[in-house]
Design a binder for these strands. Structure first.
Lengths: 243, 243
DNA sequence: CATTAATAGTGTATGTTCTACACTAATTGT
DNA sequence: ACAATTAGTGTAGAACATACACTATTAATG
């Protein structure tokens, strides 16, 4: 922000500039498993390799606007959770030219599976995080690994988990997600108490009927918790183990 | 990373490019108080305003290399803690042209006060975080606020505070740093107990004599805690306020 | 040599939160 | 009626946090 300005007038053309792209790591939950959206490259470099979707930034849009645009181009979905992850800028990460990539994480709701990823199309696919392609294009292995680790740790002390759930869900489903992510069983009674105290859920009239008492469905109250704010956390000491 | 490539050959010049700068928010402790290094602008825009030091990225250096270069240019110091903070890219944050800034945080050790900031020079100064200039240049108020908040929250679950301390320090000095950054008084007794339990400190034979009982000096045990790992935390509920 | 000032701790009562587990309640299909 | 399933409540004990009073050690000062 304070370049060596020796000239009287600022002349940006004096400086050679890198390209700037925005890449978006898009997560969703498909049948209780975490998936990520990848696209297959059709030309050099890394032809045939899978890559994180992204594109050049336009001069008239902010970084986040660019990320949302990419996201909507790829999935047709808007109104999703979006967060800046990290900026990758190694000199030779793209063999064509100097490219700096601002990476974002997006969480797409499970019920928003209207996602326009056609089954036939071979070049855009949801990949389960547990079984990813061997080697991604560019430095995208690194980007994706970082995105996953960030997601895991943030799920433990933010309300991010709600962003992955469908609009309506039961408390036991919510508990199940937490158990999946934390890798341990949680006490049912304590879970009910905590989630109620947190005041994060809004009761709905909807139920889902089955064998026994109908499942009551709830909705996440966005107004009660911006994602910047901690509200709900399990096993505080687990926070210890990361970052 | 996957621009719309319709041409057979990739031609980067088709895209108009933003400038990319790296800004470094440099913190240190001066007489037990947290300070940040700012530079005063000498020309339009924001002439006379204080700004976070930074500069354009060169085509042959990575982001982190650029940050280290800036850091050394400003302070003459290397071997410091450096961490990427966030990338700021609003369209009109710089009135001259489109500028995207990758911001870093640097923590400079207190005993490294060989820092070449001359007292006479009016245009580079350490500012106490408790008494910053009213309004910084560009969006640097926002950048600095974010840096401080990140520093605060990371302090609570990492061993970052030790990066600010000299090689040898007393327990009360350590407590003082925590108080500075957290902005609240801590209980002496509880502090002693916790820091002892944590097993993070190594006793040394050194003391510093003064009026009363000599101050015992300690050393941080790097082996016991990488900064990625939680080890020491105060007031867990404060974690709420971040990210 | 007593006093003072500073660091370096210990003790403990009280309150808050976590944890485990037993228990009750509601609703529906069979 | 009863089995199955979701939906809770109650509670004792453990663990942890907080506040504050107290003791101990050492060296400079007069």
């Amino acid at each position: 922000m304070e370049p060596e300005e020796n000239a009287q007038t600022y002349d940006p053309s004096r400086y050679e500039r890198p390209s700037v792209t925005v890449d978006v790591v898009i997560f969703t939950l498909i049948s209780q498993e975490l998936h990520v959206l990848l696209v297959q490259r059709r030309r050099w470099p890394y032809e045939g390799f899978w890559a994180i979707p992204g594109g050049f930034i336009n001069m008239d849009e902010s970084l986040e606007e660019a990320a949302r645009r990419e996201l909507e181009e790829e999935t047709g979905v808007h109104d999703v959770y979006l967060e800046q992850l990290y900026t990758f800028g190694d000199v030779h990460r793209d063999p064509r030219t100097r490219v700096i990539s601002v990476a974002y994480i997006a969480l797409v709701r499970a019920d928003a599976q209207k996602i326009k990823v056609s089954e036939e199309s071979t070049d855009v696919r949801w990949w389960p995080v547990r079984a990813l392609p061997e080697r991604l294009a560019f430095d995208h292995d690194q980007v994706l690994a970082y995105a996953i680790s960030r997601l895991r740790s943030k799920l433990e002390y933010t309300t991010l988990a709600f962003q992955l759930l469908p609009e309506l869900f039961s408390i036991l489903e919510l508990k199940h997600i937490y158990e999946q992510i934390l890798g341990e069983k949680l006490d049912k009674g304590n879970f009910y108490r905590k989630i109620k105290e947190s005041d994060l859920l809004e009761e709905t009239e909807h139920t889902r009927e089955g064998r026994g008492r109908p499942t009551r469905l709830w909705r996440f109250r966005r107004d009660r918790a911006s994602d910047k704010q901690f509200v709900f956390r399990w096993r505080e000491d687990r926070i210890d183990e990361k970052r």
